[in-house]
């Protein structure tokens, strides 16, 4: 892929993540009756970015998404978003590099990392470790949500990659 094509694709994925993130916060899922828990649809844009535009490109998708949340939903939400986004990206980059895992596994690990980092950020912001009381529930939900987005990623990414002329 040429550098220009890569940059354009990266910008498109930033836009997709912003749209998915906005869409998701506008439609609270009745299935997940857990405070603050969402499907993590915007992670689809990040997981797509890793194989297609590389580590730096996917980092920019995470940064743009968090910046949007910072501007629209405030500093606290912005800090929560960037903490979750960075740890989950780091985990996904590592797992893709190990090359032993499928999209479902990478996505579940990423969702669990995202939730854990957010709770850690919340604990630091609040000065109170008690935020971890529902950690187990967030972990269980990250299996469900991660599996769903993982299947979506596994269905979408390979044909998208071929269409774009990626390896």
């Amino acid at each position: 892929m040429s550098a220009a094509k890569k940059t354009a694709l990266c910008a498109m994925l930033c836009a997709v993540s912003a749209v998915l993130s906005t869409l998701e916060s506008a439609l609270p899922l009745p299935v997940f009756f857990v405070p603050g828990c969402r499907l993590g649809l915007s992670n689809l844009a990040v997981i797509t970015a890793i194989p297609l535009v590389g580590a730096a490109g996917s980092l920019s998708v995470v940064a743009v998404k968090s910046l949007l949340i910072l501007v629209t939903r405030g500093v606290t939400a912005g800090i929560m978003s960037i903490s979750g986004g960075l740890l989950s990206l780091a985990v996904m980059l590592l797992l893709f590099r190990l090359a032993r895992f499928g999209f479902v596994g990478v996505s579940v690990a990423s969702a669990a990392a995202h939730n854990t980092a957010q709770l850690a950020a919340a604990g630091l912001l609040m000065g109170d470790v008690r935020v971890f009381s529902f950690w187990w529930l967030y972990l269980l939900l990250s299996i469900a949500a991660g599996a769903l987005t993982g299947v979506a990623a596994g269905v979408i990414i390979p044909p998208l990659g071929r269409a774009l002329g990626a390896r």
Partner: peptide, 11 residues
Amino acid sequence: MKKLSKTPLFA
């Protein structure tokens, strides 16, 4: 980075 086409849906 691993070749994209080699990443399975589920491993």
